[in-house]
Design a protein around this nucleic acid. Structure first.
Lengths: 194, 194
DNA sequence: GAGATAGGGTACGTCGAGTACCTTAATCGT
DNA sequence: ACGATTAAGGTACTCGACGTACCCTATCTC
């Protein structure tokens, strides 16, 4: 009794959990293969048998960390909805060290097109459906033109938030900046003629 | 004859030049202290006597790489001016490996507030004066409201371009995307009432 | 129960950051 | 002009971390 050895997906999950913990505690730079192995109670062999490099493991852990999808808010007004969406994204990005993680991953994936493509999908498409839902309702209410559904336009708010993280590097964007983005840029843009 | 040993700023410039070359050839990840030392024909001591870490050296080299300021364009129309500015920024960011360099620096500076502040200044404020000049002229022409001079609004185009680099990770953003940013987002926003 | 499969343990090779220490050239003060 | 001080050159080292190799052992399958 006792000497049970984990195999397959059970071990895989344990490794991923350990990687997520390392990631949230110390960011991408602090995620080491030895560290994950130790924390998962295994060794590097088991990791390298599943992920070819530190970067791919970190990406897998990041996707795990992102976790479950949210539901589109429905506050009754367009402004309330988009503000709620932006706050949600901000909460997500400001979690322990997400912005640092993403930056690290981006830098690591810079010279690996395949990895970059996967990362792109994980970052960009996260929650883009929510925005389209909210904007779509506003269009059918006649509140804004359907031009607003163009991806380039619809994603402006989240792009500006992302930019805020990149350039400011703060751990959380204050609420009044979110409001500024919505009231000074996003809503005027959505409501602009043609 | 022959055995002249460089000192002071002469050596410093040689090191910086070497660092810039390493940076443009292999990005931030590829910049090694030994590499820079060898390329500059010196050794790591001389580098560490001037910059305390690889990250600070890379930042200094990046500033060197950015180089000279440009002049504001004057095409006669607001659209022509901002398009020209955006193309200029795109050319700059698409140079050899600038976007990778910036990402690497950002990731490295994530846990060093001081470095992050310097980097921020180098990235963000680069050329922000140009935009204000161009927008200011359009305001005095009565073409747009002075609300457009609010930083949050004025920087939207460059923020979206930056976002394009972060999320797409391409080495150069195609011109039709620049036009889309201008025509679908930036100009409608600048011209929107209140 | 024999053989294939996969995890565990451990020891490497390699590379790069940063440090230490000594030798040697250039500059400066007198 | 010449000794003292400053800074560059050379080299070797520690340390941490990625990635690999090899061999042992538990578990699953036929």
């Amino acid at each position: 009794m006792g000497s049970s050895r984990r195999r397959g997906s059970e071990l895989e999950q344990a490794i991923l959990r350990a990687a997520v913990e390392e990631l949230t505690e110390s960011g991408y730079v602090g995620l080491t293969m030895d560290g994950v192995a130790t924390r998962a109670g295994t060794n590097k062999n088991a990791i390298y048998r599943r992920w070819p490099s530190r970067a791919t493991l970190a990406l897998a852990a990041y996707r795990e960390l992102i976790g479950a999808d949210r539901e589109p808010p429905d506050t009754g007004t367009l402004r309330g909805d988009v503000l709620e969406l932006l706050r949600g994204a901000n909460n997500h990005l400001s979690a322990p060290a997400v912005s640092g993680i993403v930056l690290g991953l981006l830098a690591a994936a810079a010279d690996d097109p395949d990895l970059m493509a996967q990362l792109r999908d994980s970052i960009i498409d996260a929650g883009s459906g929510l925005w389209l839902t909210v904007l779509g309702r506003a269009v059918t209410r006649g509140e804004i033109s359907e031009k607003a559904l163009k991806p380039r336009v619809a994603t402006v708010a989240i792009a500006l938030l992302r930019n805020e993280y990149v350039t400011r590097g703060t751990s959380s964007v204050p609420d009044d900046i979110l409001i500024e983005i919505i009231d000074d840029v996003y809503l005027p843009l959505l409501r602009s003629p043609r």
